[in-house]
Design a protein around this nucleic acid. Structure first.
Lengths: 294, 294
DNA sequence: CCAGTCCTATAGCGTCTTGCTATGGAACGT
DNA sequence: ACGTTCCATAGCAAGACGCTATAGGACTGG
């Protein structure tokens, strides 16, 4: 039972005869004869009554015609969906991102992408580390990834575009004034307690590096979910290190936010595998690069 | 986009790879490669990401896989429906019948048929005359027909089975005693007024024959719908001629019912075209002949 | 780091299906 | 009785799909 057979079947039903249907389908009439004969044999049911030189839909055929139409409608819907996806009109982009990257720049990219491609849905898969993002892209679990990494990510068939640099900020509980200016030097961190994320994340790497240099920096809490760092800081449990995407939110919440002097920056990268991308994904990449170009 | 391609597509999705799917489908792996490549080209969408020596479903593929499964489910449902119809488990029998035949014996046949084939639906198309019933069968608009006719119906490729004889009865308004016994002779009809159906029906043929023999039989009303004859008789408009199937109902309604002496009988026939019948229709014919055999 | 293994893609070839044209046969209209 | 109008069948060319063999890329174990 192939699609063509059903197509012929409903055409004959609608045209009321083999000959008319053949003309409408632009095939020879014997092709219909054979296709229907085969279908009838396959289904074990007589679809048409051959009466005189005409055919009449049998009761079985009548019952099956509706189902056949349903199948063809679904098939058409699927083809239409595929076309939309192929043209990038609709589709889904799976983006692997670390949670800091997921906030910024991905949120901005999504906002811009939706202006030109309203049908495209962006789904972000959170990864814990840049390495994990890259792994997801390389393994094909996502088509693109966004992550911060000191070096340009490399890998078999991997393409990396440099986005803006992310800046890490110091966030301390409300009222805990650390410096009179807008920036702090690493030395001023001495003796402070921190809420940190688990190892293998960019912020944790920064913390470890600072701790190794400064010494005397204590861990107040280590959390698996980075989104709870700010709430813990706000409760006074300790200070936190956060990407600049969080700064606005932290300030609104009452926390004190300081830049580092010198600034702690981390390049952010857009990565995808070499080769043809899905139309929706290509749109995502194009949008990202167009807006990220400074 | 043929059924086989979709079948392969979902198999690969479910098995997680071409090779496993090929084993499950019992085809060679290259067949899958080519089928999917063709499908992707046809849809203009990459269904799988080829990553390393494996494949991963793309987001487009993910969106289309559900639709493909839907199509295949519908296709299976259709196949199952066809099988049921083919086996006669379910199905519909279109029976052409005159309205008198539709009452009896068709009603009894339906009752018996439903015992052995509960899934079979009988649809009766009412015809005005035996000639019309035969025409509908010959033209294939119905597979079988039931009608009363003095002679065995003949026609190109027509098969006719004799059923029981239908007996016509005289029905008169309540209280209008015609005879002391259960039967009347034609002479007793003299001077009576009748409610009759339109020409070309079996009862009208009987009336016309009697009227020609007896003379002095008046038409009180001629109705197009035979079902209104009994109500009109009950209101005293005139007497009526009815097949025996109506007798019980007429008596319950208070009318007086008499047989004719000699009895007025009309053979009833089951007709269908020569050749293979739909399973459900064959069941209908078998049931009819089995119960009608006296 | 190299060989072995695993998986998909391609090539080459045989068979089955589908397309076509030509023709038969039955049924209808004139 | 004839021609017309259908569907069915026959015969043949082109395409689709089956298979095996093999290439190529990527992981694994020594």
């Amino acid at each position: 039972m192939e699609r063509r057979q059903l197509e012929y079947f409903v055409a004959i039903v609608e045209q009321g005869g083999f000959t008319h249907a053949a003309r409408a389908l632009r095939v020879a009439q014997p092709s219909l004869s054979r296709a229907i004969t085969k279908l009838e044999h396959e289904l074990g049911v007589e679809l048409f009554h051959r009466v005189g030189r005409n055919v009449v839909l049998s009761s079985a055929g009548e019952m099956l015609a509706d189902r056949a139409r349903l199948v063809l409608r679904d098939l058409d819907a699927m083809r239409a969906a595929a076309r939309s996806i192929g043209e990038g009109a609709v589709g889904r982009v799976d983006v692997a991102a670390t949670s800091s990257s997921a906030l910024e720049p991905v949120t901005s990219i999504i906002a811009e992408l939706r202006e030109h491609h309203p049908g495209v849905v962006v789904s972000t898969s959170s990864a814990l580390s840049a390495a994990e993002v890259i792994a997801m892209v390389v393994q094909g679990r996502c088509e693109v990834g966004v992550c911060g990494n000191a070096e340009r990510p490399t890998g078999r068939g991997l393409v990396a575009h440099h986005l803006r640099d992310e800046e890490f900020l110091l966030v301390v509980p409300p009222g805990a004034i650390v410096s009179s200016g807008p920036a702090v030097s690493p030395d001023q961190l001495r003796g402070m307690r921190f809420v940190v994320t688990k190892p293998a994340t960019a912020v944790r790497a920064l913390f470890d590096r600072l701790a190794a240099t400064i010494g005397d920096m204590a861990i107040a809490a280590e959390v698996g979910d980075r989104s709870v760092v700010l709430p813990m800081v706000l409760k006074g449990i300790g200070a936190g290190l956060m990407p600049d995407g969080w700064a606005d939110l932290a300030r609104r919440a009452g926390a004190e936010v300081y830049r580092f002097d010198p600034a702690e920056r981390l390049p952010q990268w857009l990565v995808h595998r070499r080769g043809q991308l899905t139309a929706a994904t290509q749109a995502f990449v194009d949008t990202t690069l167009a807006s990220g170009r400074d």
